[in-house]
Design a protein around this nucleic acid. Sequence first.
DNA 1: ATTTGTGCAAATGCTTTGCACGATA
DNA 2: TATCGTGCAAAGCATTTGCACAAAT
Lengths: 135, 135
Amino acid sequence: MLLKAMTNSRNTIQRQLVLSAVRQLQNHPTADEVYQEVQKNCPTISRATVYRNLKLLAEEGEIRLRNISGSPERYDHICSNHYHLRCEQCGKVMDVEMPYMASLDEEVRKRNKYLIKSHDLTFVGLCPECAKKKH
Amino acid sequence: MLLKAMTNSRNTIQRQLVLSAVRQLQNHPTADEVYQEVQKNCPTISRATVYRNLKLLAEEGEIRLRNISGSPERYDHICSNHYHLRCEQCGKVMDVEMPYMASLDEEVRKRNKYLIKSHDLTFVGLCPECAKKKH
DNA sequence: ATTTGTGCAAATGCTTTGCACGATA
DNA sequence: TATCGTGCAAAGCATTTGCACAAAT
């Protein structure tokens, strides 16, 4: 059985633009936010290309797909395990400075027959701006 | 300013059927799974009615909307804070027997200016069945 | 009788896909 | 030149909404 090549993907302008947009935006952008950003430099790019490249770059480990509960898919320029904070009003997502609790995965592994891979932890609340508006 | 009535909703057959479907299914059903179940007893019900009643029942506190990361919205007949386990292959969702860590919310409150309400924690892995198939 | 809920169909938001053409290796 | 990627438009899910009719209070 042959080893699959690490990457047989091509280095297109669109792919480079998508990658730098995610790195530049930093804000856990959604696919559409990436599209809006890339469009500034490349007005002819299509959404499909952005979606395809985001997925591909995530599979290659260049960026990371985040499943933030209650939000459309987001892409993170930081690939390590960490937690997030979502404003339930405006949808903004921030990083939480709290170490990843690998012990939780261990604990669940002991009690369940599932092969636990990791966990997603999202804090939900109101950001200062939205909290102010609500009052 | 007058107090809004606690409930001014009507007791329709459809609403009762939606509620009992969620209680009966137990499996954190999606809106569509609830629809399929209710349809057995009431073939004329529409998806829109199921969606509307699920949302309404969740607002009234009869059931709870769960934002399980990586899954469409699900409804839980258990309303208390607890954690979930999702199989990344088949999408099945289970409860995790682990006490809710309210202290995490406290910790994040200290460090951020967000008004933290709660957190969603979802473990991701493979269920025994899917793990077997993969090998 | 009034108000709220239902069913239908259309619309929306997010994401994927088929296909012919264009770019990359 | 062979293959892979792009752009476009259409399709696919999940969910919401407008509207006329029906049911509940």
